[in-house]
C-alpha cells in the first residue's frame, strides 16, 4: 500500500522485541546507575547485588554535596562555556562554510582539503604546544582556550554546514542578486533562514562536545572553582572512590541538563545531518 512497507502484526511485534532487547543494553547501565544512587553505601557491597534498592534513600546526594560543594558551580560553568562554544561554532562555521560553498574561486578547492586535513591531526600533537601558546597569551586558568577556538571555525562544523548549503539551490542566490542583494544578504537572508536544521544540529553537537570535553579543561584549568563538570567529576572520583552511591549521584546530575536539551531538540538533528547527495 505505502511504499511496500508491508506491516504485519507479527512484524511489528518483532520490531518491538528487537528494540526492547537493545534498549536493555543501552538503558540498562543507566538504570543501574539510578538504582545505585538510591542505595545505602552498605547495600552496594551486597553479594549478590540487589537490582533495586531495598530501602530508597537520597542520602547519597547529601554526601555528594558535602564532599564536593562545588557541584552546582561546575554545572553553571559547563553551561556558560558550552553556550559560548555553541554560539561561536554556529556563527563562525556557517560564515566560513558559506565561503567554501558559494564562491567559484580557485583557492576554494585548494583550501578546503586543508580544512578536512585538520580533522586528522591527533589532538595529542597539539596538547602541549597549545598549552605553551595559551600560557604565553595568559589564557591558562581562564575559559578562553575552551571558547575562542570555537569562534574561529571548527573543521567538522564547517564540513557539515557546507554539505547542507550545497543542497540549497543556487537559483535562490541569483534571485536575490537580481533583487539587488549582495553576498552577505544571500548568507543572512537566504541561506541561513533555510538552514535551521543544521543550525540546531551544530548548536547541539557543539554544546554537547564542549559539555563532554575532558582533556581541554583538564589541562587548561587549575582553579577548582573554574572547573567544568567533566573535570570536577574526575576530582570527585579521586576524593570519594569507595562511595558508589555518591559517585552514581554525581554521574546522574551530569546527565540531566544535557539529556533534557537533547530530548527537546532531537527532531532537528536527524534532519540536519545531510551527508549524502553530493560529492565532497
Amino acid at each position: 500500500m505505502n511504499g511496500g512497507q508491508k506491516m504485519s502484526l507479527s512484524g511489528t511485534a518483532l520490531k518491538y522485541f528487537l528494540l526492547c532487547a537493545t534498549l536493555i543494553v543501552f538503558a540498562g547501565p543507566l538504570v543501574w546507575m539510578l538504582s545505585t544512587m538510591m542505595k545505602t553505601k552498605m547495600e552496594t557491597y551486597k553479594i549478590p547485588p540487589s537490582l533495586f534498592p531495598e530501602q530508597l534513600t537520597f542520602e547519597a546526594f547529601d554526601r555528594l554535596f558535602t564532599v564536593q560543594p562545588l557541584m552546582w558551580k561546575w554545572i553553571q560553568n559547563s553551561f556558560t562555556i558550552s553556550i559560548f562554544v555553541a554560539l561561536g561554532a554556529v556563527i563562525s562555521s556557517s560564515i566560513v562554510a558559506y565561503g567554501f560553498s558559494r564562491f567559484a574561486t580557485k583557492y576554494r578547492d585548494k583550501l578546503f582539503p586543508i580544512v578536512l586535513l585538520t580533522l586528522m591531526i591527533p589532538p595529542s600533537i597539539m596538547m602541549i604546544p597549545s598549552y605553551v601558546l595559551f600560557a604565553k597569551l595568559h589564557w591558562i586558568d581562564t575559559w578562553l582556550p575552551l571558547i575562542v577556538p570555537a569562534w574561529l571555525g571548527g573543521a567538522y562544523y564547517i564540513f557539515l554546514f557546507r554539505q547542507f548549503f550545497l543542497t540549497i539551490p543556487q537559483e535562490l542566490d541569483e534571485a536575490t542578486y537580481l533583487d539587488g542583494g549582495n553576498r552577505w544578504t544571500v548568507y543572512a537572508k537566504v541561506i541561513m533562514p533555510l538552514s535551521k536544521p543544521i543550525i540546531v544540529t551544530t548548536i547541539i553537537f557543539a554544546f554537547v562536545n564542549s559539555w563532554l570535553d575532558f582533556l581541554g579543561p583538564f589541562l587548561y584549568i587549575k582553579n577548582n572553582e573554574m572547573f567544568t563538570l567533566s573535570v570536577g567529576l574526575q576530582l570527585l572520583i579521586g576524593q570519594t572512590s569507595q562511595d558508589f552511591p555518591a559517585l552514581a549521584a554525581g554521574a546522574f546530575i551530569s546527565i540531566i541538563p544535557i539529556g533534557l536539551l537533547y530530548f527537546f531538540a532531537q527532531r532537528y538533528i536527524v534532519e540536519g545531518v545531510v551527508l549524502t547527495g553530493s560529492k565532497g
Partner: peptide, 22 residues
C-alpha cells in the same frame, strides 16, 4: 531514539563511573 542516544550525552568520567558499577 532518545534512550539510545542518552549514553552519548554522558560525560566520559561519568560513563566510566557507570561502567565500573556495571
Amino acid at each position: 531514539r532518545t534512550f539510545y542516544y542518552l549514553p552519548t550525552l554522558v560525560p566520559i568520567v561519568a560513563t566510566v563511573i557507570i561502567w565500573r558499577l556495571v
